[in-house]
Computed example of a mutant assay.
Amino acid sequence: MSIEVTEVSKFFGDQSALNKVSFKVEKPEIVGFLGPNGAGKSTMMKILTTYIQPTSGMARVNGYDIVADKQKVQQSVGYLPEHNPLYLDLYIKEYLAFNAQIYKVSKQRIEEVIALTGLSAEIHKKIGQLSKGYRQRVGLANALLHNPEVLILDEPTTGLDPNQLTEIRQLIKTIGKTKTVFLSTHIMQEVEAMCDRVIIINKGEIVADKKLEVLRESKEQTVVVEFDYRVEEAFLLKLPKVERVVNTSGFVYEITFKTQEDMRSSVFDFAHDNQLKILQLNQKNASLESLFRELTTNIK
């Protein structure tokens, strides 16, 4: 087990940041730790990297206890914090060589991570001359220097332009083929683009933990229909698999179904049976982002 978290809670004074959080991550797997700002993502990351200790509960990384085996955890984890700390006056290779001495790794490994993270073309530049995307690459290269089994990335794509996003996503996906990658984000699209699995946290509690394909299958489906006459919502609620009905304007209704099956035929049959004419009938699939909003706004 690459990461094992059991009943972890963290309090800052009277403020609860995490409340009995539990989950496990296998290798190789890319897991997105998703939640709104202030949900507890960075707190969990800091606990897993031994920067802070939990108030209660237990966590292991690569089999090492984060409290009893603190140094071994640090040696086996690569960490890229949200605010990537870099020495801007150093050249890329200088910076990596400095950290390689700390990790006691060979010069050959420096060349390997430069090639792996696509930094070769920029190697002649100081870090301060690099774009945000290439600075993130330097941070990833540094996190990979000691060839850790687990990579923990806190908001790795924040502030990147669309081209940089694509490049960093692909890099993380490549790394995730052989290592465990645990990354936090508040952007659902990032999880969809990179991850095998998503753990959603809200107000310090886990509200979902599913494989991404399962999460996609559980999406809602919304059918937008306009009749030629007003219909009581109670009648539409009797349709199979209906979750909710909203009369958006006039004779237009948004009917949300808890299924992936195309339910337009059921709406058509309803209209026929009730001698209604359909003026428009469209399917509107709820996105993963919509599901995320539902999970993180309807929680107590």
Rank of each mutant, 00 (worst) to 15 (best):
K41M: 10
S42M: 07
S42N: 06
T43H: 09
M44W: 02
M44H: 06
M44P: 01
M45H: 00
M45S: 01
K46C: 01
K46N: 14
I47C: 03
I47D: 01
L48T: 03
L48Q: 00
L48E: 07
T49A: 03
T49Q: 06
T49C: 09
T50M: 00
Y51T: 13
I52N: 06
I52Y: 05
P54N: 05
P54R: 11
T55L: 09
T55P: 06
S56C: 12
G57T: 12
G57H: 05
G57E: 06
M58T: 14
A59P: 11
R60F: 15
V61H: 07
G63T: 12
G63R: 07
Y64E: 08
A68S: 13
D69V: 00
D69Y: 02
D69I: 04
K70A: 11
K70T: 14
Q71K: 12
Q71A: 13
K72W: 00
Q74I: 14
V77Y: 00
G78T: 06
Y79C: 07
L80I: 13
L80C: 10
E82N: 14
E82K: 11
E82Q: 15
N84W: 02
N84E: 09
Y87D: 10
D89L: 09
D89C: 06
D89G: 08
Y91K: 15
I92A: 07
K93W: 10
E94C: 05
Y95S: 03
Y95L: 14
L96Y: 11
L96K: 00
L96I: 08
A97R: 13
A100C: 08
A100L: 04
I102T: 10
Y103A: 08
K104H: 14
V105Y: 00
K107H: 08
R109M: 02
I110M: 12
E111D: 14
E111C: 00
V113E: 06
V113H: 02
V113R: 10
I114Y: 13
L116R: 13
T117C: 15
T117S: 10
G118S: 07
G118V: 12
S120K: 15
E122H: 15
I123E: 14
I123F: 11
K125L: 15
G128C: 05
L130G: 10
G133D: 04
G133N: 05
Y134K: 06
Y134W: 14
R135T: 04
Q136P: 07
Q136E: 11
R137Q: 14
V138K: 02
V138N: 01
G139W: 08
L140P: 01
L140I: 15
A141T: 08
N142Q: 15
A143Y: 02
L144E: 04
L145I: 09
H146M: 10
H146A: 03
H146I: 08
H146G: 09
N147R: 10
V150K: 04
